[in-house]
Design a protein around this nucleic acid. Sequence first.
DNA 1: ATGTTTAATTAGAATGATTATAATTTAATA
DNA 2: TATTAAATTATAATCATTCTAATTAAACAT
Lengths: 159, 159
Amino acid sequence: MISVEEQLKSMKQQMISKGYKSTIQREATMRVLLEHERDHMSAEDVYMRVKTRFPEIGLATVYRTLELLTELHLVEKMNFGDGVARFDLRSEDHEHMHHHMICSICGEVEEIQDDWLSELEQRVKREYGFNVSDHRLDFIGTFSSCKHGDCHRHRENAS
Amino acid sequence: MISVEEQLKSMKQQMISKGYKSTIQREATMRVLLEHERDHMSAEDVYMRVKTRFPEIGLATVYRTLELLTELHLVEKMNFGDGVARFDLRSEDHEHMHHHMICSICGEVEEIQDDWLSELEQRVKREYGFNVSDHRLDFIGTFSSCKHGDCHRHRENAS
DNA sequence: ATGTTTAATTAGAATGATTATAATTTAATA
DNA sequence: TATTAAATTATAATCATTCTAATTAAACAT
């Protein structure tokens, strides 16, 4: 695990090397993302969190920063079908996008960190002549625990 | 292959059996979907197509109908991350949601009709105690043909 | 057939997420 | 330190989708 400061430095460098400027607003936004690595925050969520530390920031700036970071492949932009885009840091040890389990009882989104798709990607290439650069795999269903009343979300929130 | 009329009849029956009414607006919408089975139309697309035959229909009705059909599992609602929901008929020979290849050059969306995920769904169940009821698998990348200038989309449109 | 009941439709307004605009500020570089 | 282009701010605009109130039409019983 690399420290937050180091990760931040590396992200800033990537920004600068691509010709973008490093600003305090962008830094504040990245810091929030680093501190909520796997929270699936919406742009609004990120905005509110950044705002507690940097109250004069504008919503549009957060949107533009998230867009930029997505372009640089530093964050991933997700869509769970509820009309809001969600964002997570894309850590260097996970090149590919991870998979999700979305609970239809409690709405909780949990991640699968492994990459289960390498084989299928080769198959896509063989059978369809399609070169995969990224993927998105979501499972919709229910956690056994949720079905039995011991809801997953409650357990998480309790911690 | 079943005829459009027969499919329509079956869809109407499913509607009625669940306590919903069969109206001409719903029928017109279903007819458009049947005639564009794999076109990944947005609600607006569907609306415009229905409107040519049934000009007095309202956009909200199309939205509500698509929502209802999704609820009945007769259509699937998709999200390719461009901010618009897209809809396709869910034909009876394909219970599960099919997979997609999304070309980052031409934007074309092509389908994979097989189900490649049964194994992985069992694995999710085993390893995470998560019961999958549906899934979503999209590959992002490029068709070899597109990379070589002979764009996929052009070939499709020419037909 | 007709009337009754209740859901569905219409048109238009409202909402909510996201993007664009114009004026101002700031980071990077000379 | 001055210059220049990009970034930010605040606000307005846009786009997809949903809601609302009034009206219409399906389904069913009489």
